[in-house]
Simulated scan of single mutants.
Amino acid sequence: MSVSTIKEKTVRELIDNALSQAISYGDYRAMVNQLALEGKATGPNQTEALANYTMLNDRRMKRFDKTVKVSDAQIETIKKLDRKITFLVLTESWCGDASPSLPVMNKITEHTEKIDFKVVLRDEHEALMNRFLTNGAMSIPKLIILDSETKEVLGDWGPRPQPAAQMVLDHKAQYGKIMPELKEELQQWYNKDKGQTILNELLASLPLK
């Protein structure tokens, strides 16, 4: 058995394990809401900062759940899916980039029965996360797009849409590190964009007829 075959088998096992523990988007939203009420966060580290980010993200996801709009043309694109697929996303309650992204993913699934949307926590699935790093980092949210029958990896997306990713690169180039004000700038961009860039990037990654 070749090294590549062994590696592929390992990825498949990691995916199967994650799927066996995954929860629905509805259950994830309920969990984040409860954590926000309790002043807690997902993950092994419980800090005031992470609890505050969880509370902010709960409010942001509620807003995006209500305000993300899918056009007729975008719905027609979604309906061109040529097979049943699974959206498996790695995230945590405190992740700022997840608050606009997961509602958009869910909005796509509302327009087709061919997508099964599942959520797992990154820190409970580090081995899988390490297979889908972004520039060597465990950046989230990370969406893995799978063939629902074969579990073949068809693509991945994340942790943020291209314009937001460019904002981060430009910021690092200017300051040499991430400054606190960048988080506010990113949220302002997400609010103004209303999920449309994420939506279009995700639609471009779907296996279509």
Rank of each mutant, 00 (worst) to 15 (best):
Asp65Cys: 12
Ala22Phe: 09
Glu48Phe: 03
Thr54Tyr: 03
Lys66Phe: 12
Asp58Arg: 09
Gly39Pro: 01
Ile75Tyr: 14
Val32Gly: 03
Met55Ala: 08
Ala49Asn: 01
Val70Asn: 09
Leu50Thr: 02
Arg63Thr: 14
Pro44Ile: 00
Gln34Cys: 13
Leu35Thr: 00
Ser24Cys: 13
Asn52Glu: 08
Ile23Cys: 08
Glu76Asp: 15
Pro44Cys: 01
Ala49Ile: 00
Lys69Ile: 15
Asn52Ala: 10
Asp58Phe: 09
Arg29Ser: 10
Glu76Phe: 13
Gly26Met: 07
Thr47His: 07
Ser71His: 10
Thr54Arg: 03
Met61Asp: 04
Glu76Asn: 13
Phe64Pro: 04
Asn45Lys: 07
Lys66Val: 14
Leu56Arg: 02
Pro44Thr: 00
Leu35Arg: 03
Asn52Pro: 00
Gln74Glu: 13
Met31Pro: 03
Lys66Cys: 11
Thr54Ser: 02
Met55Gly: 03
Lys79Gly: 02
Leu50Asn: 01
Ala49Met: 05
Arg29Cys: 08
Thr54Phe: 06
Glu76Tyr: 11
Leu50Ala: 00
Thr42Gln: 02
Arg60Ala: 07
Glu48Thr: 01
Ser71Ala: 13
Lys66Arg: 15
Leu37Ser: 10
Val32Lys: 04
Glu48Gly: 03
Ala49Val: 06
Val68His: 09
Lys40Pro: 09
Lys62Ala: 13
Ile75Cys: 15
Leu35Pro: 05
Asn57Tyr: 00
Ile75Leu: 14
Ile75Ala: 15
Ala41Trp: 01
Ala36Ser: 02
Asn45Trp: 07
Asp58Leu: 10
Gly26Tyr: 09
Ala73Asn: 15
Ile75Glu: 15
Ala30Trp: 09
Ser24Asp: 12
Asp65Leu: 11
Asp27Arg: 12
Gly39Cys: 05
Ser24Gly: 11
Asp72Phe: 15
Val68Ile: 15
Phe64Ile: 09
Ala30Met: 10
Ala30Thr: 11
Val32Leu: 03
Leu50Phe: 03
Thr42Phe: 00
Ala41Gln: 04
Ser24Met: 12
Ala22Trp: 02
Ala41Val: 08
Met31Ser: 07
Gly39Tyr: 02
Leu56Asn: 04
Ala51Gln: 01
Ser24Glu: 10
Ile78Arg: 02
Tyr28Arg: 08
Ala30Gln: 11
Glu38Phe: 08
Tyr28Asn: 04
Lys66Ser: 13
Glu38Cys: 05
Leu35Cys: 06
Ala22Cys: 11
Leu37His: 09
Leu50Pro: 05
Phe64Thr: 02
Asp72Asn: 15
Glu38Leu: 06
Gly39Met: 05
Ala51Ser: 04
Gln34Ala: 13
Arg29Ile: 08
Gly43Pro: 02
Gly39Gln: 06
Arg29Gly: 05
Asp65Arg: 10
Asp27Met: 11
Phe64His: 04
Lys79Arg: 07
Lys62Gln: 14
Met55Phe: 07
Ile75Ser: 14
Gln74His: 14
Met31Asp: 09
Thr54Trp: 01
